[in-house]
Structures are given as structure tokens and as C-alpha cells.
Design a protein around this nucleic acid. Structure first.
Length: 408
RNA sequence: GGGAGAAUUCCCGAGUGGCCAAAGGGGGCAGACUGUAAAUCUGUUGCAUCUUGCUUCGGUGGUUCGAAUCCACCUUCUCCCA
């Protein structure tokens, strides 16, 4: 089975321009492909992870990936799939984000010995001359066609600025530039990028008379059709500072039953037949598959050590064991106590478990808080030094959130 | 350039002088049931020294005993005509 077939089997491929050609190129390791990343935040998140996986898979098959960071296009903002205009970003923020992306990608993709490239489209986009660009590239685009593209259609209702309208042209120009510079003959991206990507292949065909290909991967949607990797507190990030390995592990440990197999296929490097076995699990047995999913992914992103820790912590907490070593924790000092006690509300605020006292009261009134396995019934309860005799107390919020408060 | 309309809490969306911290839905959180799942049911969802007080309905001023609601100006957006 070639890489291409594997990608199909894993349900990654959404649309392709020319299946035969792409299969041939990819399977024989002759593809030089690029994937674009918009540096809209200072860390990659789960949404980018699939793209990284894809890059790695193809790299392992001998193809050469180019990670294109959209330092230039970020100045414009992709209107695809958005109903509102993107917040404009300053050059400084963008540059900072570009640096962060570089670091994170380096851990995942092998950039040594020219096996992969990392480029920033700001390098060529920012120097473009408006009139020249219009003559050279603008003449090749039909506004009629562009407006027909799905990504703009939706925006036609709400309004689309000329700035955003140009995103497709910029992205097409990227492909054109990479084709000439590095012989990049293929572009991959999320399925929402399809029309932008076609713009690129079209431009290359018209300007150079050469063929280039595009392929989109399915977006990672849960069974409700929403993008995965979002929580109420924002995205699930790949950097340990923004989403701790434990939280990361828990996110995957808690996915819906119906999404487990899909996630295993699309995100992990487990062999397909192994996943096939896991997909046969039923009822509470599915938890095994979830555990594997969570472990595999944490391992990929944060390394074995962190994955082990997260798994141990989870098993300990949910399995009634005493091990509290790897639990998220907050360290308090004597100064946080007055007269040797601290109120439960203050304690929880210190641990960032609650944003306000009101929230804390509510939780307690509804019976959602316990300290060292004892349910807190009084809003005004205080915890004295004695409770910290062993050096810490365990606060449990709701069913799943555990936190260790350590007293120094 | 001319005309019409809109901006409400995390989101959608009601409210058009006092009964408004603001209906309803979504989402979130908690409880019950469970498998750290889903579905369902219940409670809850601005802040605080919480039977009371304080701050919020795009912004700034004004009218009024009292304004999310009325007036003026500003900002942003949408629609129609050019």
C-alpha cells in the first residue's frame, strides 16, 4: 500500500485535482509540496496538527515538504469560513508568531539536510509592486469566477472588503512563486482552502503552461459537524505553556465515542489494522481506545515522558489511587493564609479554579466542590494549616477537575 | 454622493420611560443517571462584604424624579439608489 492509499484509508483526503497524477507523484516520492500556515496566534493548535501529520507522513515516503508560514498573507486575512472580518494584525505580532511556529514545527518535521523547507511568504509578498502585480497576475484572474467560489459566496451577503478579496490572489501567487523557486508541484491544505488552491494551479498553468496539483484534507470535525480542538477556553494548543500535557491528554481522553476511530485514523501513526481492532470495541470498552488515542497524541506532541505522566495522573485520579504526583498544582505560601486559615473561595481563586467568588458559591451550593474527598457544604468554610499537614490538599471541582494546592 | 435601517450580556435574539441584571434559545458550569462517552432530566449562568449594594444594553453629551428605551453628535455595520 502506498502513502496515497494510506491517506485515503485514513479518511484524510477530501478533494484532489488529478487523482492519477497525484497518486503517482506521492507514492514515488517525487512530490515537492507545500502547506500554508497562518500565523494568527503564537502557537500551533490541533487544527494545524493534521497538516503536520500529513507532512510527516509524506516526508517519510520520500517527498519533500515546504512549510509556508503566511507572514505576508496574515496581513490580509483569509475570509474563508468566516462571517466577520479578521482582526488586523501588526507586523510585530505576526513576526513573533512566525518565530513560535518555526520552533514548534522543527520538533515534528525533519528540516535537516534540505529534507524540508520552511519559508515565509512575507519574503516575496511584501516587496510586490501593485501595478506590476496587476499586470502580471491580476490579468489572469476572472472576478466572475472568483465570486463563484464558495468561500466568497457566503461573504457576499455580509460584505467582503477588497482587502480580503485579494487573499485568494496572494495565496495563488505563493504557489506560483514556490513552483518557480523550489519546483513545488503540489499544494495541500484544509478543505476550506480548495478554491484558493485552485487559483494557484490555474495561475501556474496560465503563466507557465505547467501542471501543478492541489489536494485538500478533510477538516477534523466531530460527530456534530463542529471543528474539533476547541474548548470553552479556546483552542487546544500544541505548546505546553498554553495547554498543559495533562489537559491535552484529557481533551482526547474525553472525545465522543463516535469520534474515537476517526481521530485515531486521522491523527495517529498507529497501523491501520491495529485501529481496525480498536474500532471493534463496544460499550465501556471504548475507553481503552480513548486511552490509546490520548496517549499516542500526547506522546507525539509532548514526548513520551509527558505522555506517561499525563496517563499516570489520569489513571490515578479516576482510578481512586493515591498518586497525586502529576496533578496540576498551585503552590501557596504562608502569606496566602491569614491566622493559619484560608477560605475555600480564596483558595480556589488562587488555584484559578474559579474566576469569581460568585461562581465559587454556586459550585459549592450545587455540591460540586470537595477538598480531600470531603464535600464542601458551607460557602464560608475555611481550610486551616492542619489540613495541609501532608503538604497539600486536593481540591476537586466537578467530576473531572482535580487540583493540588501545595503549601510551602 | 443621496436615502433607509441596525448596534443588547459568551453567541443568537426579545425588550421602545419605572415591574430590567434585562424574555427565549444556544453554549458553558454543576447535580442525577453513566463508562472520565452520548442522550435525558434538574439547577445555574454580570460583580461584590450576596435577603442588600454596585457596574452593564456601540461611544460621548443631554432631557427626566427615573433611560437599554427619548434627543443630539460621533463610530461601526447592513440594505437601497448613483
Amino acid at each position: 500500500m502506498g502513502v496515497y492509499e494510506e491517506l485515503v484509508a485514513r479518511g484524510l483526503i477530501a478533494q484532489v485535482t488529478d487523482e492519477e497524477e497525484i497518486r503517482e507523484l506521492v507514492n514515488s516520492g517525487k512530490a515537492v509540496f507545500y502547506i500554508g500556515f497562518d500565523p494568527t496566534a503564537d502557537s500551533l493548535h490541533v487544527g494545524h496538527f493534521m497538516a503536520l501529520c500529513l507532512m510527516k507522513r509524506l516526508q517519510m515516503a520520500g517527498n519533500k515538504p515546504i512549510a509556508l508560514i503566511g507572514g505576508g498573507t496574515a496581513m490580509i486575512g483569509d475570509p474563508s469560513g468566516r462571517t466577520d472580518m479578521r482582526q488586523m494584525m501588526t507586523k510585530e505580532t505576526i513576526n513573533h508568531n512566525v518565530e513560535c511556529f518555526k520552533k514548534q514545527m522543527g520538533r515534528f518535521i525533519d528540516f535537516s539536510e534540505d529534507k524540508a523547507l520552511l519559508v515565509n511568504n512575507a519574503d516575496w509578498l511584501l516587496d510586490l509592486n501593485y501595478v506590476e502585480l496587476l499586470r502580471e497576475v491580476g490579468s489572469q484572474f476572472s472576478v466572475n469566477n472568483m465570486l463563484r467560489a464558495e468561500c466568497y459566496k457566503q461573504r457576499m451577503e455580509k460584505g467582503l472588503s477588497f482587502l480580503e478579496f485579494n487573499y485568494m490572489i496572494m495565496q495563488s501567487y505563493d504557489f506560483y512563486a514556490l513552483f518557480q523557486k523550489y519546483g513545488c508541484n503540489m499544494q495541500f491544505g484544509g478543505d476550506d482552502q480548495w478554491s484558493n488552491m485552485l487559483g494557484g494551479t490555474e495561475l501556474i498553468r496560465r503563466k507557465l503552461g505547467k501542471d501543478a496539483y492541489a489536494m485538500t484534507i478533510n477538516l477534523l470535525l466531530n460527530s456534530e459537524g463542529k471543528k474539533m480542538g476547541k474548548t470553552q477556553s479556546g483552542a487546544v494548543w500544541l505548546s505546553a505553556e498554553k495547554t498543559s500535557p495533562y489537559e491535552f491528554y484529557q481533551y482526547w481522553r474525553n472525545v465522543d465515542d463516535s469520534d474515537v476511530v476517526k481521530c485515531l485514523k486521522m491523527l495517529t501513526f498507529l497501523p491501520l489494522d491495529e485501529i481496525e481492532q480498536l474500532s471493534k470495541l463496544e460499550g465501556s470498552e471504548i475507553n481503552k481506545a480513548k486511552e490509546i488515542l490520548a496517549y499516542e497524541l500526547t506522546n507525539l506532541i509532548h514526548g513520551k515522558e509527558e505522555a506517561d505522566k499525563a496517563q499516570e495522573a489520569a489513571r490515578a485520579l479516576f482510578g481512586n489511587k493515591k498518586d497525586t504526583n502529576n496533578m496540576p498544582s498551585t503552590t501557596l505560601t504562608q502569606d496566602d493564609l491569614t491566622d493559619g486559615t484560608i477560605s475555600i473561595l480564596d483558595l480556589m481563586k488562587k488555584c484559578s479554579l474559579i474566576p469569581s467568588n460568585g461562581e465559587g458559591r454556586r459550585l459549592i451550593q450545587q455540591g460540586g466542590v470537595s477538598v480531600d474527598d470531603e464535600k464542601v457544604t458551607d460557602v464560608y468554610e475555611s481550610i486551616s494549616v492542619d489540613a495541609f499537614e501532608k503538604g497539600y490538599v486536593i481540591i476537586k471541582k466537578g467530576k473531572k477537575v482535580y487540583h493540588k494546592a501545595i503549601l510551602e
